[in-house]
């Protein structure tokens, strides 16, 4: 009885997904592949086939080129920041004999925040007459236009996003740390291995699967940045924070260039897919070469 096929039930129970996949995945995919070769403006009933013109225009556009580099800039700032900080959180709370769950819950709270709220708080905190800016001006004569200069805008957005994810990734790493047996450390302590050395030679290698997870997740985050940038900089100044999502949103829903936006989206998907694939492979190679996997 257990080996009998039950085709009707199987298809019935999976049908919600299948219908969903056709309507919101297959059809849209085909539609955007078609639109990318047209000059449709989202409103007018007629439009022409323009061949690869959209792609040529996109590849020459400073905004698209910016989106390509901005994503990697975010990655270079955000990924190490969130990884190091979540490691610190994990190492700190893992060894606590009491109130551990209190700290775990506390550190996780930022993950509940809306990107809009986090951005608004960040903006208020860094506004011209805010305590921190007054302090910097009066004590050091520093006048920082946080969101007005390319470098600091990138940093501010990265910190705001990292704030959200540190506790969540910290939780993932904590459970990774807990899976490492105490015996390993005790054996190392008997052999007289110093604590710093223990971290590098025992903790880190055994934690590699958990770190791999958080790294992949955080890389994924950088390819989907939108809310914070939309709320704080609109992609500026001078495209310094213009992410893929921001660019597609602007082209499709502000400039109403649905055809062109579809072309940009296709380029973005290809870049995203290839980049994540390469990063995955590099991480796996790194793990293998060190004998961690």
């Amino acid at each position: 009885m257990g080996t009998k096929n039950n085709n009707g039930l199987g298809w019935l129970f999976t049908s919600p997904y299948l219908v969903f996949a056709v309507v919101f995945f297959v059809v849209p995919l085909a539609w955007s592949l078609y639109l990318a070769f047209t000059n449709w403006d989202l409103i007018s009933p007629d439009y022409q086939n323009v061949g690869v013109a959209n792609f040529i225009k996109a590849l020459g556009s400073p905004a698209v080129r910016a989106a390509f580099f901005v994503t990697f800039k975010f990655m270079v700032v955000f990924v190490p920041l969130v990884t190091v900080m979540s490691l610190v959180v994990a190492v700190l709370i893992q060894g606590l004999p009491r109130f551990k769950s209190f700290y775990m819950v506390g550190f996780f709270l930022p993950y509940l925040s809306s990107g809009v709220v986090a951005s608004l708080i960040g903006k208020g905190f860094l506004s011209y007459s805010s305590p921190i800016n007054v302090f910097l001006r009066e004590q050091f004569g520093l006048k920082i236009n946080w969101l007005g200069s390319p470098f600091s805008a990138l940093m501010v957005v990265s910190v705001i996003i990292a704030w959200k994810f540190i506790g969540y990734y910290g939780l993932i790493l904590t459970s990774g740390l807990e899976s490492i047996g105490k015996e390993v450390y005790e054996a190392a302590a008997i052999d007289g291995v110093t604590e710093t050395k223990r971290f590098w030679t025992i903790t880190l290698p055994l934690l590699y699967p958990a770190i791999y997870t958080t790294l992949i997740l955080s890389v994924g985050v950088t390819f989907g940045i939108f809310t914070e940038v939309y709320q704080l900089t609109g992609g500026g100044p001078n495209f310094a924070t213009n992410t893929w999502q921001m660019e597609i949103f602007n082209q499709a829903f502000k400039n109403l260039q649905a055809g062109y936006a579809s072309a940009v989206a296709i380029i973005a998907s290809v870049v995203t897919f290839i980049s994540i694939y390469i990063i995955r492979k590099l991480l796996e190679m790194w793990g293998k070469r060190n004998g961690w996997v």
């Binding site: 309507v23 919101f24 995945f25 059809v27 849209p28 995919l29 539609w31 955007s32 639109l35 390819f223 989907g224 893929w244 999502q245 597609i248 949103f249 499709a252 649905a258 936006a261 579809s262 989206a265 296709i266 973005a268 998907s269 995203t272 897919f273």
Partner: peptide, 13 residues
């Protein structure tokens, strides 16, 4: 699959 490609066409659907 990078979901980014679906934003515009899903809106159109």
């Amino acid at each position: 699959f990078p979901a980014i490609i679906l934003l515009v066409p899903n809106f159109l659907v």
